[in-house]
Amino acid sequence: MEPVIECQGLTKRYGSLLAVDHVDLAVGRGEVFGFLGPNGAGKSTTIRMLLGLIRPDAGRALLFGQSVAAGQRRVLKRVGALVESPALYDYLSGRKNLEILSDMSGGCPRKRIDEVLELVGLSGRQKDRVGTYSHGMRQRLGLAQALLPKPELLVLDEPATGLDPEGIVEIRNLLRYLGESEQMTIFVSSHLLHEVQATCTDVGLLSRGRLVTRGRVADLLRQGHLEATIGIDDAARGREVLRSLPFVLAVESEDSALRVRVEAERLADANRALVAAGLAVSALVPRQGNLEELYMSVMTEAGHACSSAD
């Protein structure tokens, strides 16, 4: 099946700075794709090239097999986008903004405007000037304008920026709903790694303009190692047994239990060794992998000097 988004050797240079460096990427239909990377990694530049806002120096960015930069702009009818902070007309009402942007896409029933306003929780303020909106409300309106044409592909650049915790949860639920119920392909860049982990099916990590990792979230988190908490009757002895096993990477005491890190898929072997040594295992709780750890480890490996995911 043809990918919804396809980057082929996508490159952009600003003077001596290589902002995007030969990025090859494909996002299939129905994926909720998280696009991650530190500030300045080239995420927004890549998104802008996808949407035809920036012309690539080399390579191609295709949406539904067509290049917006090469003038095939009709494809944008199938796309909803929110690029960075929502930029809307402050002197117009929220509703008028949506009407104008809808007309630019060929128009949509006024009922659809009501629907998206309801969806983002702005029905009550739709007649107020956008200049009076809070940052969070602007963000919601930005999301509403992206959803307006009932897009097959939703491209969101930092959609949760500036939202309060309730707003972040609402966005998370909305993206889940759109991905699962509406079968929408969603391409979202974000620094909120736990949100990406909770929402996205796939991720790609960008570092210094290069795509350093790409895959399904579940697969990436299973890679490498697994952590688990083991409830055991004799923690000291259990620690000795586990330390003697070559696939056990680390063992730490945690109250009366043990916390172990083992190679992927080897937790059952560790349990078998404990039982064989005559120890009673009362609990074996694998700990869910963490995208933040994966991110930090990939970024360290890629040599990106970053201390956090912002």
Partner: peptide, 14 residues
């Protein structure tokens, strides 16, 4: 400068 140009240029019109 207001950023609205990027909003309208992500719409279909050439």
């Amino acid at each position: 400068s207001a950023g609205t140009l990027r909003t309208i240029l992500t719409r279909p019109p050439a």
